[in-house]
Amino acid sequence: MTHVKRFQGIPMSKSMRGLCKEEDYVFLGMSGKMSKEVVEAAGAFEDDGSMKKEERVHRQLERERQEKERLREIEERKKEKEQQWQTHVAEVTSSQEKILLERLSRLRRFREFQRKVLVEESGMEGGAANDAVDQLLTRM
Results as ranks from 00 to 15, higher is better:
Arg77Asn: 02
Thr2Glu: 15
Lys5Ser: 07
Met34Phe: 13
Trp85Ala: 09
Met124Arg: 03
Glu91Ala: 05
Glu37Gly: 05
Val92Tyr: 14
Leu118Asp: 01
Val89Tyr: 04
Ser95Phe: 09
Leu61Asp: 07
Val92Ile: 12
Gly123Arg: 02
Gln83Gly: 07
Lys78Ile: 13
Asp134Phe: 03
Glu97Pro: 05
Gly32Tyr: 15
Ser15Val: 10
Arg72His: 09
Glu40Val: 01
Asp134Lys: 06
Thr138Cys: 00
Trp85Ile: 11
His3Tyr: 13
Ser35Gly: 07
Leu61Ile: 04
Phe7Lys: 01
Glu120Phe: 01
Arg115Lys: 00
Phe45Thr: 07
Glu23Gly: 00
Phe113Met: 07
Phe27Thr: 13
Lys5Asn: 15
Arg111Thr: 02
Asp47Phe: 13
Tyr25Ser: 08
Val38Asp: 08
Ser122Phe: 07
Glu23Phe: 08
Gly49His: 10
Met30Gly: 04
Leu104Tyr: 02
Asp134Glu: 07
Glu112Gln: 03
Ile10Leu: 08
Gln8Met: 08
Leu107Tyr: 10
Lys116Glu: 13
Gly29Trp: 14
Arg139Cys: 02
Glu69Ile: 00
Met30Glu: 14
Thr93Cys: 02
Gln84Thr: 12
Val89Cys: 00
Phe45Ala: 03
Lys52Trp: 03
Gln83Ser: 03
His58Lys: 04
Gly49Ser: 01
Glu91Phe: 06
Glu125Asp: 04
Thr93Met: 01
Gly32Glu: 11
Glu69Tyr: 03
Arg139His: 09
Arg59Trp: 06
Gly126Leu: 01
Gly127Val: 15
Val133Gln: 00
Ile10Cys: 03
Arg70Ile: 04
Leu28Gly: 11
Gly127Ser: 12
Glu112Tyr: 08
Leu136Glu: 05
Val119Ser: 01
Glu102Val: 15
Val26Cys: 13
Lys36Asn: 10
Cys20Met: 08
Gly43Glu: 14
Ser95Glu: 15
Gln66Thr: 15
Lys14Ser: 06
Ile10Ala: 04
Ser94Gly: 09
Gly9Leu: 02
Gly126Gln: 07
Lys78Val: 09
Lys78Tyr: 03
Glu97Trp: 03
Arg103Glu: 09
Cys20Gln: 07
Glu55Ala: 06
Lys52Asp: 07
Val4Met: 08
Leu136Ile: 03
Glu82His: 00
Gln135Tyr: 03
Glu121Phe: 12
Lys33Ala: 04
Glu55Lys: 14
Arg109Thr: 08
Ala41Thr: 14
Lys5Gln: 13
Asp134Thr: 05
Arg106Cys: 09
Lys53Val: 02
Lys98His: 14
Gln86Thr: 06
Lys98Arg: 12
Ser50Gly: 06
Glu120Ser: 00
Glu80Met: 05
Leu107Pro: 00
Leu28Trp: 15
Met1Val: 10
Val4Gly: 05
Lys68Leu: 08
Val117Met: 03
Gly123Met: 02
Thr87Ile: 14
Leu104Thr: 06
Asn130Thr: 11
Leu61Gly: 00
Pro11Met: 05
Leu61Asn: 01
